[in-house]
């Protein structure tokens, strides 16, 4: 279990709440309307959202009926299966050279996630360069520099307020000449409804496609697990701007359940690939649907 201990620990806090209540609920063994109402409430309180919750509840209702399940444990397993099926994904793999652009709204933990990613790739024997394209927030590049140092990777930065696309351009040139395996791009946090900032992101995206078309591309959105249904809007608008491939769900070491990723998967089909469970450099884990669901339930 060792590897997932931290996840389980992190999710345990949520478990005390919803997990306990769910077990109590299933234990009764009567799967009537009251049961499904209560289940609905529990899912909603994990931020799963109204429409995904309805789908899950309907699916479970159908399966219990079809397979004539009356045993509480079996019913619970059906629920787990449904959630795992909804969330399951192939492992996140990259082939060099790869460019990972990290986007997200303010304060979700983009810079920290990049620091952790850099360290992971480095440990896998890959060469890494970080592009500090958050030129907006005060001291953002200093924060990133500390992470680059901790991870032992290179960082390309310009002055505060300079053109982010230019930083990316420089990072790409440098990576090409040094044959760097992974290029991580930090971008400024922006609220997704700010049109000009989204345009800036598109510009960075264009620069990458133009300057390094042969590199593998991954656009990663970082979501804060404490975020509620607004995460759907975040994914939708960032996806419209730059096409999102992957999700990193951060701050799962709190009490938030991050259930909104279920709603996101249902609506956009974008998988969660990483979860952040702490502030240490190794506190970024590959997402595992079963552990995640195990943690929630």
């Amino acid at each position: 279990m060792g590897f997932f201990k931290k996840i389980i620990d992190g999710l345990k806090k949520t478990q005390q709440n919803i997990g306990f209540k769910l077990k109590q609920l299933f234990k009764v063994g009567v799967f009537d309307d009251d049961f499904f109402d209560e289940l609905e409430t529990l899912l909603l309180s994990s931020d799963v959202g109204a429409s995904a919750t309805l789908e899950i509840v309907d699916l479970l209702r159908d399966r219990l009926e079809e397979e004539k399940i009356t045993d509480p444990d079996q019913a619970m397993n059906e629920l787990k299966d449904i959630l795992v099926e909804m969330l399951d994904t192939d492992p996140f793999e990259i082939k060099s050279p790869a460019i990972i652009m990290v986007v997200g709204v303010n304060g979700v933990g983009k810079t920290t996630t990049i620091g952790k990613l850099a360290s992971q790739f480095k440990n896998q024997g890959k060469s890494v360069v970080i592009a500090a394209a958050d030129t907006f927030r005060a001291a953002a590049s200093e924060q990133l520099e500390v992470w680059a140092e901790r991870a032992g990777v290179r960082i390309i930065k310009h002055q505060e307020g300079s053109d982010p696309a230019a930083v990316v351009f420089d990072a790409l040139s440098s990576a090409k000449s040094r044959k760097t395996d992974v290029i991580l791009i930090d971008t400024a946090g922006r609220l997704h409804n700010k049109v000009n900032l989204m345009e800036e992101l598109k510009k960075i995206n264009r620069v990458i496609s133009r300057e390094y078309p042969e590199a593998q591309r991954k656009n990663l959105i970082v979501l804060d697990a404490t975020t509620g249904q607004n995460a759907l809007q975040q994914v939708e608008l960032f996806n419209d701007a730059v096409s999102i491939d992957s999700i990193a769900l951060t701050k799962l070491d709190g009490t938030a359940k991050g259930g909104v990723v279920i709603a996101i998967r249902e609506k956009f089909g974008i998988p969660v690939d990483f979860i952040g469970v702490g502030e240490g450099i190794d506190d970024l884990m590959p997402f595992d649907a079963e552990s995640f669901v195990e943690g929630i339930l």
Partner: peptide, 12 residues
């Protein structure tokens, strides 16, 4: 508090 916080806002 971040206005986008979900159900967990109460716990926090």
């Amino acid at each position: 508090v971040d206005a986008m916080t979900g159900q967990d806002a109460v716990t926090v």
